[in-house]
């Protein structure tokens, strides 16, 4: 018994699919090569806002480090309940600063750099203040955003 002859239409459809597949395959091979030859641009800091935690996570009179993209940040909660946040990167040599309750200051362990609680460099080698973030409290969540 002879095979039924496929219609011309079905054959054309199959050929079109085959051609399209071959083209897509070629593109799939060529694109990575081109992309490899042209390295991706190093993108800058893309993060513009992070959720740091809930209000009750931060005791009044405390300082907490958090991650903001590729850099650390420091969130201060004052005794009156208000918040302030800064980059936690020392402006001297990029060490991570920390809150020192005993000093009432932001302090860098590398070279004893000191900042007041407004982020202003007040002692030691840091050449300029810490960059500030904006703190937004939404309900019971504490968000930190780029100023």
């Amino acid at each position: 018994m002879a095979d039924p002859a496929p219609s011309e239409g079905r054959r054309r459809t199959l050929k079109t699919l085959l051609g399209t597949g071959a083209t897509a395959l070629g593109a799939a091979i060529v694109y990575p090569i081109v992309a490899y030859l042209k390295p991706p641009e190093v993108t800058g800091e893309q993060v513009t806002s992070v959720l740091v935690g809930k209000v009750e996570d931060f005791a009044p009179g405390s300082g907490t480090l958090f991650r903001f993209g590729n850099k650390p940040g420091i969130l201060l909660r004052f005794p009156n309940g208000s918040f302030k946040a800064f980059t936690a990167t020392c402006t001297h040599l990029d060490c991570t600063v920390q809150y020192r309750e005993d000093m009432g200051l932001i302090w860098c362990a590398c070279h004893n750099g000191k900042y007041d609680l407004n982020g202003k460099n007040i002692e030691g080698p840091p050449p300029r203040p810490l960059d500030p973030f904006e703190v937004v409290v939404k309900g019971d969540e504490v968000h930190v955003t780029q100023t």
Partner: peptide, 23 residues
């Protein structure tokens, strides 16, 4: 990073090593 791999976490962790170097 040049190859397009995600390395942010590794780079972030390496900050602490640099800090130890300075300290």
């Amino acid at each position: 990073e040049q190859k397009g791999m995600e390395v942010d976490d590794i780079r972030f962790a390496l900050r602490d090593a640099n800090q130890a170097r300075l300290q």
